[in-house]
């Protein structure tokens, strides 16, 4: 099961509720959490209801469209509030995804939003400072003060690997990292659509996939993070203990 954050991504029409971009609520287990002093439009909520439990569940079927579908519109044709459904964290590791492997652990509530991780990544891998070629990025919601490092979490069932039609991705048996055979990558972006964490990126020039490979065991983003938002998950640690 995943926890979800449902965010007002943008508003195409005119919402008189009014909802504002950045407004959000969270779904944790079977509970809906609306932040203090915020509200949620009943009509929009009823249009989202059916998909929320579906987005919470795991799916390893590469043909399943659910992991990739993220945007939902409110039903008011004049309002057109577009909601984005983000999977924020896994609530339990029972389904086995990444349960016992090593990997990156994220605590968004500690992230200062400084983006040093992006620079450390690009400097270590490309020898330059360039967030555009980093394999990690910090998603920021400035009005709400959310900073969320987005990076590969080494899922055990690796939907990106399953989604690649060219066999360009595989999972390293020892480190659990997703590794890329660049000659095989055609830049088709099927892995991007399959990733539940939105953690697959593409190189600006080569158009090929960029995905965290744990720097071979010593992730530079982790060593540059001073707040403890990005740490290494020990093999024995269950992913569900992240939060």
């Amino acid at each position: 099961m995943y926890d979800l954050r449902v965010v007002v991504d943008h508003i195409k029409g005119s919402c008189d509720m009014p909802m504002h971009p950045g407004d959000y609520f969270e779904v944790r287990g079977s509970r809906i959490y609306i932040p203090d002093n915020k509200y949620m439009c009943l009509w929009a909520l009823q249009s989202l209801m059916a998909i929320l439990p579906a987005k919470q569940r795991d799916s390893s079927d590469p043909d399943d469209w659910l992991p990739a579908a993220r945007y939902m519109s409110c039903p008011d044709p004049n309002g057109m509030v577009i909601f984005r459904i983000d999977r924020i964290e896994r609530t339990s590791s029972e389904s086995g995804v990444g349960a016992n492997g090593p990997g990156i652990k994220i605590k968004p509530e500690l992230c200062s939003g400084c983006r040093a991780c992006e620079l450390a990544c690009s400097f270590s891998r490309a020898g330059v400072f360039d967030p555009g070629v980093a394999r990690i990025r910090v998603d920021k919601d400035e009005p709400e003060g959310h900073d969320i490092p987005i990076v590969c979490r080494q899922c055990a069932d690796a939907p990106c690997v399953n989604a690649c039609p060219f066999g360009a991705l595989h999972k390293d048996k020892t480190t659990g990292a997703i590794l890329v055979t660049y000659e095989k990558c055609k830049g088709c972006r099927k892995c991007e659509a399959a990733c539940p964490n939105r953690a697959v990126f593409f190189h600006r020039e080569t158009k090929k996939v960029l995905i965290c490979d744990l720097c071979g065991g010593d992730p530079k983003c982790v060593s540059r993070c001073v707040t403890g938002a990005i740490t290494v998950r020990e093999p024995s640690e269950k992913e569900g203990e992240c939060r």
Binding site: D36, N37, K38, E109, L110, C111, S112, G113, C114, R115, A116, L119, G145, D147, V226, T227
Partner: peptide, 26 residues
Amino acid sequence: TKSKACFACTIPCSRFFIVKEGPYSG
């Protein structure tokens, strides 16, 4: 609610806050 920082800073000296009570709550 948490510490915030400028670009690539190792000293997260800024902060985010949410007023939790009184007339400016929220």
